[in-house]
């Protein structure tokens, strides 16, 4: 069993209006030192033992569905996990 954590974020070159609004909100709360906020997505995938190439599969699903390469980057962490 593997637990995979996938982080999808907007590419650096892409403006993030949501992050910008949060940054402005933080600044109006008095947190002037927060220069920039970028908002992304966090996903957890649970793989069973039938998947032999976990890393290859993770890359594949990230590119096919979980992220849109036009505007987003992804990274992932793979952890071995015991059966629940």
């Amino acid at each position: 069993m593997y637990k995979v954590k996938v982080y999808v974020t907007l590419r650096e070159s892409v403006l993030d209006p949501q992050g910008k609004a949060v940054q402005q909100s933080l600044s109006s709360l008095g947190y002037n030192g927060v220069e920039d906020v970028r908002i992304g997505k966090y996903m957890e995938l649970q793989f069973d033992d039938t998947v032999t190439d976990v890393e290859g599969t993770v890359k594949e699903v990230c590119e096919k569905l979980l992220s849109n390469p036009v505007i987003e980057d992804y990274r992932y962490e793979i952890e071995e996990s015991a059966k629940q």
């Binding site: 892409v14 403006l15 209006p17 949501q18 609004a21 849109n68 036009v70 505007i71």
Partner: peptide
Amino acid sequence: LLESGLLPGAMLRNKNL
């Protein structure tokens, strides 16, 4: 159509959210 690659590019949230 953008997601399927039939057209190039992508959509972001409206600038004013």
